Amino acid sequence: MLAVRVRRCGGRAVLLEVDDAAGVAAVAAAVRDAALPEVRELVPAARTVLVEVAPGAATERVVQVARAADAAAGEAGTGTVHTLPVTYDGEDLALVAETAGLSVDEVVALHSGAEYRVDFCGFTPGFGYLSGLPEPLRQPRLESSRTAVPAGSVGIADVYSCVYPRRSPGGWRLIGRTDTVLFDPDADPPALFTPGDRVRFEPR
């Protein structure tokens, strides 16, 4: 069983705090799979899961399900597998290689050889935080953020990789680009990534 700390959020929600991203994935999967009729919204984040229930409903069953979650269930993604073709020619690719003490080809091989899990989404619609970045590629964000990062840019920062779903400011180190559309407001669902999904990058 997981160590889950419960914080009340008003009268209709609870914030479930855990120790790591795997715990978040396990709790989110357990609550989602329980299909509790009172649950209206479930929002995973880096170390928390916010669960909102219907007006007048209690949160006790949500807490029970969360505390009974199988910790091992969060170690691997359980959702859809997405394979994204990537051209590895990002503005920071040489910087990433130099910082890691690797060749550009080694950076590409490491990044594309890993499987990532969508831990949570945020920052901008369709933006997923993808855990699973190989240890040698873990580097800080840029000291100064760019005012505009093109849509489809593939980046890394800290323990995560990402794909920018739309043109936006950003400080991640850019190593490539993909033509895959991550967010389309006219699609159902509009966002390609859902927490728990797995992502693979395929060099082209």
Rank of each mutant, 00 (worst) to 15 (best):
R8D: 15
R12G: 10
V14N: 05
L15P: 02
L16D: 10
D19L: 12
G23D: 06
V24F: 11
R32V: 02
L36R: 01
R40W: 05
L42S: 09
V43S: 06
P44F: 12
A45Q: 06
V49L: 13
G56E: 10
E60T: 14
A66P: 11
A68C: 06
D70F: 08
A71V: 14
T78A: 14
L84G: 03
L84Y: 09
V86I: 13
L93Q: 02
L93A: 04
A94S: 13
L95N: 03
A100Y: 05
G101L: 07
L102V: 06
V104S: 02
V108I: 15
A109Q: 12
A109G: 13
L110D: 06
Y116E: 01
C121L: 15
T124D: 03
T124W: 04
G126N: 03
F127I: 04
L130E: 12
G132F: 08
E135M: 02
Q139W: 02
L142K: 14
E143F: 01
S145C: 03
R146V: 00
T147E: 08
G152C: 04
G155D: 08
G155P: 11
C162K: 00
V163P: 00
V163K: 00
Y164W: 02
G171D: 02
D179H: 10
A191C: 10
G196P: 12
